[in-house]
Design a protein around this nucleic acid. Structure first.
Length: 388
DNA sequence: TTTCGACCTCTTAA
DNA sequence: ATTAAGAGGTCGA
């Protein structure tokens, strides 16, 4: 498995999934009957697992096969990324606005859309409204800890499965979730769980079957659930229901369309009307084709300066003085004093913050940002030019 | 049928 | 330190 086909560090941290943990360079994730463990180096990805405590006996060989099957399915490994990237790069060159920007598809390889469990994706993205990745992750963890089943332990950390729908239908769930910091989403989750329980028209079985239905049907089905609007519904369509061409639109994606591509924005930027939403979604589908949703996830990642929230940096050239190097957890602060012009390559799993007195010019992927007196976080595997 | 404020909490910026 | 804005939206008037 080439790293250009799948980069775990990017895929598992780009806001698709919220439960993977990185412990000593090993990725871990609890599913129904085991903890799945993955480790990636330059050549390959190794997989293993820790079975559910007191689980029924199976031969090691069967277990390994099952884990492999999960990985293959979860990461959509039957889909070849290289060919898609080639196509997107061509389309990018045709439709981009301006000529001086490098292709994000060159700089951000190995990003793919996962094929996640529909129920978990549904609940996760209900949590995502008006929210950030860090907090969403925390909420998902709390949900598992409170309502999931204990699976086993790895490196001193206890792992719990994602809770079944039935476990979120009791009356006290909303109150408890509020105590756990879910805010107004507590009601959404409880109501959605209840709807899928009671209603004949809505069930988890039908939710899962949306993989066999078309986009329109799936989208409308999801909109019936509390806390699910057009954006969240499209995230579920793309990331769990095999609707690879769907681009979930938000203001950020809108910005990319107008700034980097030749999308003509109608009306003001602030109001995301139904019409604009649909227009943007179709525009990206027009440009990138059948796997537009996949392409968009690369653009989004490329545009996000804090893609790898916590996974980072660094080798800093001598021109940067490590005047104040404070180690706080995994954070390191480096002050840049002199006028410098240097290149930083992100290599290790550390978070680097660069603080400047003066204005700092950051160029990455041909895109230039000016930053003053603030810190930036640099994503892994990326070269960034810094001028000051 | 569209628009617009309110909504929980946490993080980051000033 | 203390405060305000914003976070990959959704609901309901």
């Amino acid at each position: 498995m080439e790293i250009s086909e799948l980069s775990l560090a990017k895929v598992l941290r780009c806001g698709q999934t919220f439960r993977w943990k990185n412990i000593n360079n090993v990725w871990s994730f609890a599913i129904q009957d085991r903890i799945v463990l993955l480790k990636q180096d330059d050549q390959r990805i190794q997989y293993s697992h820790i079975m559910l405590e007191n689980s029924p006996l199976k031969s090691q060989k069967i277990q390994d096969q099952e884990t492999f099957k999960f990985v293959q399915d979860y990461f959509n490994l039957s889909i070849n990324l290289k060919d898609l990237y080639t196509h997107w790069t061509e389309q990018h060159l045709i439709h981009r606005k301006g000529k001086n920007s490098n292709s994000p598809f060159q700089a951000f390889t190995g990003i793919r859309i996962l094929r996640q469990d529909p129920w978990e994706t549904l609940i996760s993205f209900i949590c995502s409204s008006n929210n950030n990745v860090k907090r969403i992750s925390k909420m998902c963890d709390n949900l598992c800890l409170e309502y999931g089943e204990y699976i086993n332990e790895y490196e001193g950390m206890k792992f719990y499965s994602f809770p079944a729908p039935e476990s979120l239908t009791e009356d006290n769930v909303e109150l408890r979730l509020r105590e756990l910091g879910f805010g107004y989403r507590a009601k959404y989750i409880h109501q959605t769980a209840c709807k899928l329980q009671d209603n004949k028209d809505l069930s988890v079985e039908k939710l899962n079957d949306l993989r066999n239905q078309d986009y329109q049907t799936s989208h409308e089905f999801l909109l019936q659930l509390t806390g699910v609007g057009p954006k969240v519904a499209d995230c579920i369509c793309l990331m769990a229901l095999d609707k690879h061409d769907v681009v979930p639109v938000d203001t950020h994606v809108y910005q990319i369309a107008v700034r980097d591509y030749k999308f003509k924005g109608k009306g003001d930027l602030k109001s995301m009307t139904k019409v604009i939403y649909g227009a943007i979604r179709l525009y990206f589908k027009d440009v990138f084709g059948e796997y537009a949703g996949w392409a968009q996830s690369v653009l989004f990642a490329a545009d996000l300066s804090d893609l790898n929230n916590g996974v980072n940096i660094s080798e800093v050239e001598s021109t940067i003085k490590e005047e104040s190097t404070k180690v706080k957890g995994s954070k390191r602060t480096i002050k840049i004093e002199d006028k410098v012009k240097t290149e930083i390559e992100v290599k290790t799993e550390e978070l680097l913050e660069i603080k400047t007195e003066d204005e700092l010019i950051i160029s990455e992927n041909g895109r230039t940002k000016r930053i003053r007196s603030e810190s930036i976080k640099l994503p892994v595997s990326k070269k960034i030019k810094v001028e000051c």
